[in-house]
Write a protein that binds this DNA or RNA. Sequence first.
DNA 1: TTGAAAGCGTTACCAA
DNA 2: TTGGTAACGCTTTCAA
Lengths: 347, 347
Amino acid sequence: MTAPPPIPARRGATVHSLSRLAGVSVSTVSRALKDDPRIAPATRRRIADLAREAGYMPNVLARSLSGGQSGLIGLVNGPMQNPFYAELLAEAVNQAAERGQRLLILHAGTGPIEDRTSEALLHYRVDGCLVASAELSSRAAAICAERGVPLVMVNRVARLHASAVSCDNEAGGRDVAKFLLAGGHRRPALVLGTVGVSTSDGRERAFIARLAEAGLRLALRLHGHSTYEGGHAAGTAIAALPAGERPDAVFVLNDIMAMGLLDAVREAGLRVPEDLSVVGFDDVPAAARRCYGLTTLAQPLGTMVRRGLDLLAARIADPALPDESVTLRGQLVVRHSARLPDPARAG
Amino acid sequence: MTAPPPIPARRGATVHSLSRLAGVSVSTVSRALKDDPRIAPATRRRIADLAREAGYMPNVLARSLSGGQSGLIGLVNGPMQNPFYAELLAEAVNQAAERGQRLLILHAGTGPIEDRTSEALLHYRVDGCLVASAELSSRAAAICAERGVPLVMVNRVARLHASAVSCDNEAGGRDVAKFLLAGGHRRPALVLGTVGVSTSDGRERAFIARLAEAGLRLALRLHGHSTYEGGHAAGTAIAALPAGERPDAVFVLNDIMAMGLLDAVREAGLRVPEDLSVVGFDDVPAAARRCYGLTTLAQPLGTMVRRGLDLLAARIADPALPDESVTLRGQLVVRHSARLPDPARAG
DNA sequence: TTGAAAGCGTTACCAA
DNA sequence: TTGGTAACGCTTTCAA
């Protein structure tokens, strides 16, 4: 009868077990593992080999406990039914991974954030947090500031205790107005999303201001939820207007609503852009599909995320850095949901 | 000259600082904070108050170091351009939050998973991991098994060292075949997504088997990337076929491709469903939009995620539990992208 | 009902 | 170039 085989170490290798195997101290192991130049190359290699064989996996939780960073970036995201947020998430995940950081999703949805959620941000000691949706409560933001957890708003205007990166909403609103005016539209309407979204203000203000310069006023101003359904409802309402009162162009403040609106007005029998021009904002991938062909103001999402992570990284390295806002210029992508400028007139 | 005000504790309250404030030991604080019945109610309340005032935030990293769980669930997700994965993510985030767990996103994209990514799973000591996309390398899976990290495949068939929850792909394929046959289609085609996706096999096999029972064979079998563009390319190819060789129905194995295919065949001038019936799989939200009106086999995504988290929770509690596969029945959602069964014939 | 102390895995400072 | 040791914040066992 043979002795039973030794039970393999269930809990994996640690710097401790490696130090015993290598016959060196834990500090040497720790240093060797992070390629500290002070460790003799031979020792370093030996430990690296041992670590590989043993299937050593550093415990980042322990590492961050010991003064370091967690490598965790929090993300407070908007509703994933909106492809803009889906894309934002994808960008953030991939770009963070390139920097050796991981995304902890704190929220992905509409509506206010539960207290439990905003606290998780602190519980998990994220190194920083990207906020792309419904405002974090000011209390949560204040706690983050107090604790030195940098916050960066993405596609949201700056707030107290947070940096921000967003599209130049004023320029965007103005560009859309200019484009619509050049197209000869005389009865422009505006469709806004969920109230209280900070980016809407700039877009609306600049849009209206530019119209005013041309002596025009808004023919209609509607509010809806920032969803496909919200846009659909707005479109149905517009299509139901008597022809004389109907706007000849609509600026919809985000693409997901613009798509809903487009479907609704077409269902109602209106032709786009002959009867109604539609312009969106965001340039989500689906906007390019033939069944939408949406003219829209593209946000430079990849760059926004990159700059957001940059701001975060800088503040993680030096928490004393002041809040900073960066504004990126978007670009009008012309497709066929809006009447094109008359060459004769524009010429 | 006044003494400078004391610098506030920069690093937040800890069980230690609270114990000093309350004049009790750290163990008492620790216990009081988790409502241990052994602590006198008065003490408990006093400590709770102190904790609130001090803005105490437990450090879950430290907690999990000390033998507990991290509360972190890993997610290896597919490309977010596919609304199916966006929805899956949203479900997972919200349902995990209800269970007091947070999602660590390890991957969100197409293509193989980098080693760094799959290792992060171990580095962060996730309690378990949901895998919804491209296979984790077998090596990673083996390590997880060895380390006792439960894995649950979602919308993927079971693999070694992992539980799984998926839609009944066989039943789904059969249901679609039955529906198409009842609609009088005689030249059915199949469009598959990215090769090697484990769920495709069952759908295809059952679809073909049911056709065979009716004496029919596949008129065409195409492969593409599981993207809108992949579907679009397939649609273009089908529309380019001479009318005599063209299939009269296509079963597209996922909705994102079905939408691309739908747009492509319509662009090419075909009428759906008069010239071609299209049936998808998944039932993503956009499938219901008027411009698609896609008949598709709906996956019970909410339930799939729920059962997935259940499987995980059970294995976190008892790592000795054997792997388990759960199969959920999907449901055909009939819209107007496919010719309806002839009532007389279906009689 | 409460306290003391060990331990979780790492890092970093101070010696050697 | 390497080792010892004290944190980091929390939980838990064992005593009292």
